[in-house]
């Protein structure tokens, strides 16, 4: 079943310049979709357009069969989509626990069970729940950011470069966590610089360049594709 589609998205930060032109993306239920491409290809802009931070000039975003184009981020969040920005993705002066509670802001029910599930997924967060998020290392911050986004039990998780700026051993750990989150039934769109790793875990992949769709195929096929290898995977 198709859970999320972006159809013919044209979007930009100013009215004159469009970063994205007619971009199409489809996410099937339970899948991981990775979006790769060079710097400035518009990968982050695509996620921002889906989440309503940026209003597309043209095109439609559909969640299941509902048109959610142009909704504000807090309303998109209520529809069951969560988003983890690449930078500034924690509340630095709040404790880890408070960061997670803020993720559950739109929930009116008792979310303590969900909180415990997050602590099981990221045990280190549970050990330090009273610590301020601003004092954490990069990898731990990323865990807080993902934990915050997971608090609402989202159906779709949008991850913007989860491995950016992390040491290699942490990159591996974060990708393992992403796979285990996906196994709990969360469908995901991941935007990544680390193209090889991103395609390895992806069910389906999209290559963007200059704000347009270049190629799309299953993750394995893209990995095996010579042109993709030469242009985007570094040989």
């Amino acid at each position: 079943m198709t859970i999320l589609t972006a159809e013919n998205i044209t979007a930009g930060y100013t009215t004159e310049v469009n970063i994205l032109t007619d971009v199409n993306i489809r996410l099937e239920s339970g899948q991981i979709v990775s979006v790769i491409g060079p710097n400035g290809a518009g990968k982050s802009t695509l996620l921002k357009s889906i989440f309503g931070i940026l209003k597309p000039v043209k095109g439609k975003i559909r969640l299941k069969n509902e048109d959610i184009t142009g909704l504000k981020p807090n309303n998109v969040a209520q529809k069951g989509i969560s988003y983890v920005p690449q930078v500034d993705n924690v509340f630095p002066s709040l404790t880890i626990q408070e960061n997670l509670e803020m993720g559950a802001f739109i929930r009116d029910d008792d979310f303590s069970r969900r909180l415990n599930e997050i602590y099981e997924l990221f045990p280190v967060l549970g050990e330090r729940k009273k610590q301020k998020a601003g004092h954490l290392s990069g990898g731990q911050r990323q865990m807080v950011a993902m934990g915050r986004a997971l608090m609402v039990d989202p159906t779709v998780l949008l991850l913007d470069e989860p491995s950016a700026g992390l040491a290699p051993n942490l990159v591996e750990m974060i990708f393992e966590k992403i796979i285990s989150i996906n196994k709990t039934g969360v469908s995901m769109i991941i935007v990544e610089q680390n193209a090889r790793e991103a395609l390895k875990m992806a069910d389906y992949g999209y290559v963007l360049a200059m704000g347009r769709n270049v190629l799309d195929d299953t993750g394995d096929s893209l990995l095996a594709n010579e042109e993709v290898g030469r242009l985007y995977l570094g040989g």
Binding site: K72, P73, A77, D88, V90, F91, L94, M102, F105
Partner: peptide, 13 residues
């Protein structure tokens, strides 16, 4: 939270 990071607050719903 909003004083810390308004955009993330909005993103968190």
């Amino acid at each position: 939270a909003t004083a810390d990071n308004m955009e993330l607050a909005l993103v968190s719903g």
